[in-house]
């Protein structure tokens, strides 16, 4: 009975979604059909040509210099430059949820012991792989303005490397206090850079450093610095969440 009512409700919701998006009754639909989007009508065309605040026609890889934003990866330039305030709010949301998890699962803790005892090869092989994973994560968030990747997946890869050590070694506990300090410092520097931009450029989180030639490593001004901070913050927060879930309360 419950299933039938649910299916009927879901079908009604689906009918309304489809009819509102694809069969408008009167006037033109503001919604473009799949794959037939005209980018010149959208705000993204100025993100692609990098002429939001000034005049610019075309960006050429390896030649254009001193643009308002020198990132070759457009997604990065939207996240960290044009919509950086959104990203600041987003890392705040992640911080609050990590804080809530820590509060709910608090108490006198010990690590959950697994049923199996890991053998020698697993234990030391995991340490070898841990180094490689951390290096790859750092590469990912320091090259976020040139290649796909960036702070969010880079931080998550570092957290996954810590998760590997937790799984491979029964006695391993990360130093959570150091992570909390890293997280706080990274978040504070992000806000301080934003305030510094008000003093120098006039807008919160404006890209006030000089931008070089598009496609070189020192080409995006503030973007790599902020992405490294985001990577450290996301990595330490997700590692904190994983640590909270792997502990149980000590019974008295």
């Amino acid at each position: 009975m419950k299933q039938v009512v649910s299916i009927l409700l879901v079908l009604a919701v689906g009918f309304f979604i489809f009819s509102a998006l694809y069969f408008p009754n009167q006037g033109d639909s503001a919604f473009d059909s799949y794959g037939e989007v005209d980018l010149d009508e959208r705000v993204s065309s100025s993100f692609i040509d990098k002429n939001v605040t000034g005049e610019n026609d075309e960006v050429v890889f390896g030649e254009s210099a001193n643009l308002e934003d020198g990132s070759a990866n457009y997604v990065t330039s939207v996240i960290v430059n044009y919509r950086s305030f959104d990203t600041l709010g987003e890392v705040t949301v992640l911080f609050i949820s990590a804080f809530g998890v820590g509060l709910l699962l608090s108490g006198r803790r010990k690590k959950q012991a697994f049923a199996h005892q890991p053998n020698f090869i697993l234990k030391y092989g995991a340490r070898l792989v841990f180094g490689i994973m951390v290096i790859f994560g750092v590469y990912m968030f320091s090259h976020g303005h040139l290649a796909p990747g960036g702070g969010f997946p880079g931080g998550a890869i570092i957290a996954a490397a810590l998760l590997l050590l937790y799984l491979a070694d029964n006695d391993f506990r990360a130093k959570m206090k150091a992570f909390k300090v890293t997280e706080g410092i990274a978040g504070s520097i992000y806000v301080i850079l934003g305030l510094l931009a008000i003093v120098i450029g006039g807008y919160f989180l404006m890209n006030f450093l000089p931008t070089g030639i598009v496609g070189t490593i020192f080409s995006a001004g503030l973007i790599p610095i902020i992405y490294v901070l985001i990577g450290l913050k996301v990595g330490s927060e997700i590692a904190g969440i994983v640590d909270s879930f792997l502990t149980v309360e000590v019974e008295k």
Partner: peptide, 19 residues
Amino acid sequence: APDVAITEAVIGSGLVTAI
């Protein structure tokens, strides 16, 4: 969307499943 694909692969199918 390569950026989104990398993020989803690491977080969606790795860390969320682990939690």
